[in-house]
Amino acid sequence: MTGSTEASLRVEVLGSQHDRNSFECGVEPLDRYLRMQAGQDARKNIAAPFVLVMPDGAIAGYYTLSSTAVSVGEWPVETVRKLPRYPLIPATLLGRLAVDRRQQGRGYGRYLLADALLRSLRSEIAAFAVIVNAKDGNARRFYQRESFLPFPDQPMKLFRPMADIAELFR
C-alpha cells in the first residue's frame, strides 16, 4: 500500500450508501453475504459489518465483528491455566473478512485485520480474545502469520489473546 493510497482509505460501518453489488472477492458465500445478509445482520444486531472504502467509493473489502463465547474446555491447556473457572470465556468473533479480487495482493487484508483488532481492543465490552474460523488453508496460514493460535482440536479455529493485541498497538 502506498502512503497516499492508505491515507485516502477509510473503514466505515456498512450503510445504505455503499454499493455492495459490485463487490467480488472470488468466494461466493462471502460475496453473497455482503450483498444479501450483512445489512440485515447489522439491523438485527447479529454482526457489525465494516467496509474498506476506496477514494472512488468502491468497497475494497469488509469484515464483521460480533460477540461470542467459547467453552473453557476448547482452549489450549496453557491458556486455561490463566483463566478464571468460568464455563464460557467471552471473545470477539471476526466472522468474515474478504477483499475484492481487484484489490487483492495490496495489503488490504492485513489493513482490515488491523482495523478489526483495534476496534475489538477499544470496545468497552470485555473479551479475552479475538476468534476466527478460517475457511481454508490459505486463510488459516494468513491468520497464523498474524500471530493467531489454533485451538487444540479445531485447527481451523484460531484466536489471538486481547493482551497480545494490546501489546501490538502499544
Rank of each mutant, 00 (worst) to 15 (best):
N45S: 15
A116P: 02
G105V: 00
E78D: 09
R81T: 11
V80S: 08
Y143K: 07
G95D: 04
G57S: 06
Q37C: 10
I125H: 12
Q154Y: 10
L158Y: 03
T68D: 09
K157P: 02
P76W: 11
V130C: 14
K44W: 02
A47M: 10
V27H: 13
F159H: 11
V53P: 10
E146S: 11
F142L: 12
E124Y: 05
G109V: 03
T64V: 02
C25G: 10
E12T: 07
A69R: 11
L9D: 00
A69N: 13
E78N: 11
P84T: 07
A116G: 09
L149A: 09
M54C: 09
G109L: 00
L113A: 02
C25A: 14
S67V: 07
P29E: 00
P49R: 01
K44H: 06
A126P: 14
G15L: 05
V132Q: 07
R10H: 07
Y143A: 04
P84I: 07
S4V: 00
G137I: 01
V72Y: 07
Q17T: 09
E12N: 11
G105T: 01
R32K: 08
P161W: 06
P49K: 04
V11Y: 04
E167V: 10
R10T: 03
G39T: 03
H18W: 03
G3A: 14
G61K: 00
Q37A: 15
Q37V: 09
A42L: 15
I165Q: 09
R32S: 13
Y62I: 09
A60H: 06
V53R: 03
P152T: 04
G107L: 01
R35V: 05
P49E: 06
V13Q: 12
V53C: 13
L34V: 08
R81P: 07
R140E: 02
R160L: 05
A126E: 12
S147R: 15
Y62P: 13
V27T: 11
